[in-house]
């Protein structure tokens, strides 16, 4: 009796779940390069393979000589370009690096790091909230803001 009941329960569960199980599924890997990280810092450390922010910060003052915008990109095979656009507190374009081509040869890598930097001398940058926008392969991929005090 018990065995029959267990078999009946198992059969019921299998028949109920059979309507929602199939083997046609979605692809699992992204096809686009992904902007993993945007960091602002006043200095960049060079590691064996990648660059690192000395200290990631979002607020700068006149003591900081330069502002680095360091990015980390998870890449996919194929040609690739990077672009930084810096917007002032008045929301106008202050600096545009244009498309920067990335040479992924000779050895294949899974991610890259790169930076753009601006000087912060007296009267160079207006105080307030600045926004840096990153483009990958000509498409908007991320943005981050920092404060200049």
């Amino acid at each position: 009796m018990n065995r029959r009941m267990t078999l009946a329960v198992l059969w019921s569960l299998l028949s109920l779940s059979s309507s929602c199980v199939s083997f046609r599924t979605a692809t699992s890997m992204p096809k686009e390069p992904i902007l993993e990280k945007i960091d602002f810092c006043s200095a960049v450390k060079e590691g064996p393979d990648i660059l690192k922010a000395a200290e990631s910060i979002d607020a700068f003052d006149s003591d900081d000589q330069r502002i680095y915008c360091l990015i980390k990109v998870w890449i996919v095979p194929g040609p690739m370009t990077l672009r930084w656009k810096w917007y002032s507190p008045e929301r106008t374009l202050w600096r545009d690096t244009g498309e920067v081509e990335v040479a992924l040869e000779p050895k294949p890598v899974s991610s890259i790091t790169a930076y753009d930097r601006v000087p912060t001398g007296p009267g160079t940058l207006a105080k307030g909230t600045w926004t840096v926008v990153i483009f990958l392969n000509g498409h908007f991929a991320g943005r981050r803001s920092f404060q200049l005090m």
Partner: peptide
């Protein structure tokens, strides 16, 4: 680790 697929879940 991948599992089996589901039509709707």
């Amino acid at each position: 680790a991948r599992s089996i697929g589901f039509r709707k879940l």
